[in-house]
Protein backbone atom coordinates (compact mmCIF):
# COMPACT_ATOMS: atom_id res chain seq x y z
CA UNK A 1 0.00 0.00 0.00
CA UNK A 2 2.81 2.38 0.90
CA UNK A 3 4.60 1.56 -2.37
CA UNK A 4 1.41 2.29 -4.26
CA UNK A 5 1.16 5.84 -2.91
CA UNK A 6 4.90 6.38 -3.21
CA UNK A 7 4.71 5.45 -6.90
CA UNK A 8 1.86 7.90 -7.45
CA UNK A 9 3.79 10.60 -5.64
CA UNK A 10 6.94 9.98 -7.64
CA UNK A 11 4.95 9.96 -10.87
CA UNK A 12 3.46 13.35 -10.07
CA UNK A 13 6.82 14.76 -8.99
CA UNK A 14 8.52 13.68 -12.18
CA UNK A 15 5.77 15.23 -14.30
CA UNK A 16 6.07 18.50 -12.39
CA UNK A 17 9.83 18.60 -12.89
CA UNK A 18 9.40 17.86 -16.61
CA UNK A 19 6.77 20.56 -16.91
CA UNK A 20 9.18 23.02 -15.31
CA UNK A 21 11.70 22.36 -18.10
CA UNK A 22 9.09 22.43 -20.82
CA UNK A 23 7.42 25.50 -19.34
CA UNK A 24 10.38 27.72 -20.22
CA UNK A 25 9.41 27.34 -23.85
CA UNK A 26 6.17 29.20 -23.27
CA UNK A 27 8.12 32.42 -23.52
CA UNK A 28 10.24 31.70 -26.59
CA UNK A 29 9.15 33.18 -29.94
CA UNK A 30 7.42 30.95 -32.47
CA UNK A 31 9.53 29.42 -35.22
CA UNK A 32 6.70 28.42 -37.57
CA UNK A 33 7.17 29.51 -41.16
CA UNK A 34 3.93 30.30 -43.02
CA UNK A 35 5.13 28.36 -46.04
CA UNK A 36 3.45 29.58 -49.21
CA UNK A 37 3.74 33.17 -48.03
CA UNK A 38 7.21 32.99 -46.50
CA UNK A 39 9.95 30.79 -47.88
CA UNK A 40 13.02 29.23 -46.42
CA UNK A 41 16.24 30.58 -47.90
CA UNK A 42 17.97 27.67 -49.57
CA UNK A 43 21.77 27.33 -49.55
CA UNK A 44 23.45 27.80 -52.90
CA UNK A 45 24.46 24.15 -53.23
CA UNK A 46 20.85 22.95 -53.02
CA UNK A 47 20.18 20.08 -55.36
CA UNK A 48 16.71 20.44 -56.83
CA UNK A 49 15.43 20.39 -60.40
CA UNK A 50 17.89 19.69 -63.19
CA UNK A 51 18.37 22.32 -65.87
CA UNK A 52 20.32 22.05 -69.09
CA UNK A 53 21.59 25.09 -70.94
CA UNK A 54 21.16 23.43 -74.29
CA UNK A 55 23.16 26.07 -76.19
CA UNK A 56 26.28 24.91 -74.31
CA UNK A 57 25.49 21.18 -74.49
CA UNK A 58 27.78 19.25 -76.82
CA UNK A 59 25.67 16.10 -76.69
CA UNK A 60 28.44 13.86 -75.35
CA UNK A 61 26.05 11.81 -73.23
CA UNK A 62 28.36 11.61 -70.20
CA UNK A 63 25.47 12.64 -67.94
CA UNK A 64 23.29 9.81 -69.23
CA UNK A 65 26.09 7.30 -68.61
CA UNK A 66 26.81 8.48 -65.07
CA UNK A 67 23.13 8.54 -64.03
CA UNK A 68 22.34 5.65 -61.66
CA UNK A 69 18.62 5.72 -62.44
CA UNK A 70 18.88 6.31 -66.20
CA UNK A 71 16.60 9.29 -66.16
CA UNK A 72 18.40 11.21 -68.92
CA UNK A 73 17.75 10.35 -72.58
CA UNK A 74 20.14 11.81 -75.14
CA UNK A 75 19.88 11.25 -78.87
CA UNK A 76 22.35 12.84 -81.21
CA UNK A 77 23.46 12.77 -84.84
CA UNK A 78 26.65 13.93 -86.52
CA UNK A 79 26.59 17.34 -88.13
CA UNK A 80 27.31 17.32 -91.85
CA UNK A 81 30.69 18.50 -93.13
CA UNK A 82 29.14 21.29 -95.20
CA UNK A 83 27.31 22.79 -92.23
CA UNK A 84 28.62 25.88 -90.47
CA UNK A 85 30.45 24.88 -87.25
CA UNK A 86 28.63 25.57 -83.99
CA UNK A 87 30.44 26.31 -80.75
CA UNK A 88 29.48 26.24 -77.11
CA UNK A 89 30.08 29.39 -75.08
CA UNK A 90 33.42 28.06 -73.77
CA UNK A 91 34.65 27.43 -77.31
CA UNK A 92 34.09 23.65 -77.51
CA UNK A 93 33.00 22.62 -80.98
CA UNK A 94 29.54 21.03 -81.06
CA UNK A 95 30.20 18.19 -83.46
CA UNK A 96 26.94 16.44 -82.62
CA UNK A 97 23.45 17.71 -83.09
CA UNK A 98 21.41 16.95 -79.96
CA UNK A 99 17.84 16.46 -81.11
CA UNK A 100 16.56 14.70 -77.98
CA UNK A 101 17.58 15.71 -74.48
CA UNK A 102 14.89 14.56 -72.06
CA UNK A 103 15.18 14.43 -68.29
CA UNK A 104 12.54 12.54 -66.36
CA UNK A 105 12.42 14.30 -63.01
CA UNK A 106 10.11 11.60 -61.67
CA UNK A 107 12.97 9.10 -62.01
CA UNK A 108 15.73 11.44 -60.85
CA UNK A 109 17.24 10.56 -57.47
CA UNK A 110 18.85 14.00 -56.99
CA UNK A 111 22.34 12.63 -56.46
CA UNK A 112 23.96 15.26 -58.67
CA UNK A 113 26.42 12.86 -60.32
CA UNK A 114 25.47 14.05 -63.82
CA UNK A 115 26.35 17.66 -63.04
CA UNK A 116 29.89 16.62 -62.15
CA UNK A 117 30.24 14.47 -65.26
CA UNK A 118 29.26 17.31 -67.61
CA UNK A 119 32.41 18.61 -69.38
CA UNK A 120 30.93 22.01 -70.28
CA UNK A 121 29.08 22.58 -66.98
CA UNK A 122 25.83 23.15 -68.86
CA UNK A 123 23.83 20.65 -66.80
CA UNK A 124 23.15 22.14 -63.38
CA UNK A 125 20.87 21.52 -60.44
CA UNK A 126 18.84 24.60 -59.71
CA UNK A 127 17.23 25.64 -56.47
CA UNK A 128 13.76 25.34 -57.99
CA UNK A 129 11.63 22.96 -55.95
CA UNK A 130 8.01 23.87 -56.63
CA UNK A 131 7.23 21.88 -59.73
CA UNK A 132 4.56 19.39 -58.76
CA UNK A 133 2.32 18.43 -61.67
CA UNK A 134 -0.93 16.53 -62.12
CA UNK A 135 0.34 14.02 -64.64
CA UNK A 136 3.50 11.96 -64.26
CA UNK A 137 4.43 12.52 -67.91
CA UNK A 138 4.66 16.24 -67.31
CA UNK A 139 7.77 15.51 -65.24
CA UNK A 140 9.69 14.77 -68.45
CA UNK A 141 11.47 17.96 -69.42
CA UNK A 142 12.46 18.39 -73.08
CA UNK A 143 15.53 20.52 -73.55
CA UNK A 144 16.55 19.82 -77.15
CA UNK A 145 16.08 22.78 -79.50
CA UNK A 146 17.22 21.28 -82.82
CA UNK A 147 15.48 18.87 -85.16
CA UNK A 148 17.17 15.85 -86.74
CA UNK A 149 18.04 16.16 -90.43
CA UNK A 150 18.28 12.47 -91.23
CA UNK A 151 15.79 9.89 -90.10
CA UNK A 152 18.47 7.24 -89.60
CA UNK A 153 20.68 9.69 -87.79
CA UNK A 154 20.45 8.06 -84.39
CA UNK A 155 24.11 7.55 -83.79
CA UNK A 156 23.82 7.10 -80.05
CA UNK A 157 20.97 6.09 -77.84
CA UNK A 158 20.48 5.83 -74.16
CA UNK A 159 21.17 3.46 -72.50
CA UNK A 160 24.40 2.82 -74.38
CA UNK A 161 25.26 -0.76 -75.18
CA UNK A 162 27.63 -2.70 -72.98
Amino acid sequence: MLTYFRNIGQGIMTIVSSMAIAGRHLFTPSVTLQYPKEKWLLPERSRMRLMNKIEDCIGCGQCARSCPTECILVKTEKRGKEEAPVFASDGTAKKLRTYVFDIDMALCCYCGLCTFACPTQCLIMTGEYEYSVYDKDEHIYHFAAEKPLTVAGESRQNPPEG
Binding site: P43, R45, S46, R47, C111, G112
Partner: peptide
Protein backbone atom coordinates in the same frame (compact mmCIF):
# COMPACT_ATOMS: atom_id res chain seq x y z
CA UNK B 1 22.45 20.87 -46.58
CA UNK B 2 24.87 23.74 -46.65
CA UNK B 3 27.76 21.38 -47.38
CA UNK B 4 26.31 18.82 -49.76
CA UNK B 5 23.09 20.40 -50.98
CA UNK B 6 20.73 17.73 -49.69
CA UNK B 7 19.08 17.32 -46.33
CA UNK B 8 18.59 13.59 -46.10
CA UNK B 9 20.22 11.66 -48.95
CA UNK B 10 23.55 13.33 -49.41
CA UNK B 11 25.79 11.44 -51.86
CA UNK B 12 28.51 13.37 -50.05
CA UNK B 13 31.18 10.74 -49.52
CA UNK B 14 32.75 9.88 -52.83
CA UNK B 15 35.18 7.12 -53.62
CA UNK B 16 38.51 8.81 -52.98
CA UNK B 17 37.21 12.01 -51.49
CA UNK B 18 34.21 14.19 -50.85
CA UNK B 19 31.71 15.92 -53.08
Amino acid sequence: EETSGARLLYNYNWIGGLM
